[in-house]
Each structure stands twice: as structure tokens, then as C-alpha cells.
Amino acid sequence: MSLLSYLRIWLACARYSVVRTMMFRFDFIMWSLVEFLWMAVNLLLVAVIYAHTDEIAGWSQYEMLLLVGTSMLVQRFIMGFFWSNLFEFARNVRSGHFDFFLAQPGNPLFMVSTRKLDLDGLANTVVAVGVIIYAVRQLGLEPSLLQIGSYVLMIGCGILIHYGALLAIVSLTFWLGASQGIEGSYFTLMEFSRLPREAFRGAANLIFVWLLPAVVVSNVPARTLLHGFEPQHLLWLAVTTAVWFALGVTVFNRGLRRYASASS
């Protein structure tokens, strides 16, 4: 299939998701509110700590807000585009409904990942952008076009990294079978992206900054707005993106070979 037909499929799925959301308006409002409240809870944590201290690992309150906002933005995109698709993918592998995706004339990974959009997650990206703009204003920053451009690019890298990590995690279902709530590890991991890199020491530094992609995803874009464009950081992010996206796809493909359907 050509790229154009994939785009058409994606647009059809998107249209279907919008129609569905319109049908269940109350649900949409409730879930948007739920996500919004959770974001507020995390912002409150920042506010409470800074009521008692001036800096965390050298980051001032609004710098920290920028970091948390960045981490939220990436996560909102993941929630909007991929989370429920990949969550259902794991469930379908267990139940055997995954057969249905294999029977479709398209790349299975594409079919699995793009089935629907969660508009409530996407609605809250506006809130995350609001938080970021507010922090930038409070800090009195005037980012150049290069900074803004690379920030947007870096958010894109962040989405790919998160997607790769999440895909690698849920693809483990091919081996594990029964549900043990492994999807939860994604949220546990990404919690660390709300922390400044300088706070990590020793083993934590090795694990969360270098081995796992939790810290780089939020810290590098936030630093770009704060301290200007740094090519070595962009390189670090680019390499991480390549590694984690490839890892996700590899684990998925390896698992696919093991898939032997289920009783249904």
C-alpha cells in the first residue's frame, strides 16, 4: 500500500473517532475533566514544594513548571493518539481478537496503533501548551525561531520515544500472556520525566538519565527554551529516539512471530 492510502485510512479512523466522541459527549467531558484534574494535581505538587523552597536541583519554580508542562504535552499526545490503541492491542492479543488486525491488508503495527483517537487527551494538549506559554512568560523568555522550531521537533522526538517504549512494554504480552498490569510500568517510568536531570545522582542517574528514556524526553526540550539551542543535546535526543523507536518495533515484530492466536 502507498503512503497515501495509509493517510486515507488514518483520516477515516480520525473521522470515525470524532463522530463517536460527538455521540458520547458526556463521556468526553468527564474524561477531559479527569485528565485535567490529574494535571492540576501535578502542578499543585510543584506549587506546594516551591512554597517551601526556592529551587529544586537548580531549577526555579517557573523553570520547573516549563519542565512539567513539557512532560505533560508529550504525554497528552501519547494519550490522544496511541494509549488506548496499544492498551487494546495487548487485550486483543490475550483474547485472540488480534487475528482481525492480521487479516487486514496493511502493516499490522500501523493498523494496531492508529485505530482511534482519544479526543479528550488531545483536548488537554491545549492546557499543557497553556502551562508552557505561561511559564515562558513568567520567566521573561523570548525564544528565537530556531529555539521554537527545535522545541517542536524535540516534542516530536519525545512522542516517538514514548511510543517506542510503550510499544515495547505492551508487546511483552506476546510472551507473558495473562494480564499483570505491565502497562502501568509506562506511567511509572514517565513520572521521572517531571524531574530535572540534575536531581539524579549515582545509580538513579545511570538508570533514568542514560538507560531509560524518561529524563531526556522532557529535559532536553525544556533546556532548549531556557538556555538556547545546544546541538549536542539534540544529538542525544535523536539517538535516543532512534534506539527506542527501533526497540519498540523490534519487540513488536519478534512477538508477532510468536503469536499463535488464542481460543475464540
Partner: peptide, 16 residues
């Protein structure tokens, strides 16, 4: 793991 997050965050907040 969440406890590790808590330790890192509060450890940094208590610096100084």
C-alpha cells in the same frame, strides 16, 4: 519505583 521518584524529588527540594 514511585518511592524512588519521591526520594529524588524531595531529596533535591531539601538541598540547602
Amino acid at each position: 519505583f514511585h518511592l524512588a521518584f519521591v526520594f529524588i524529588l524531595w531529596g533535591a527540594a531539601y538541598k540547602g
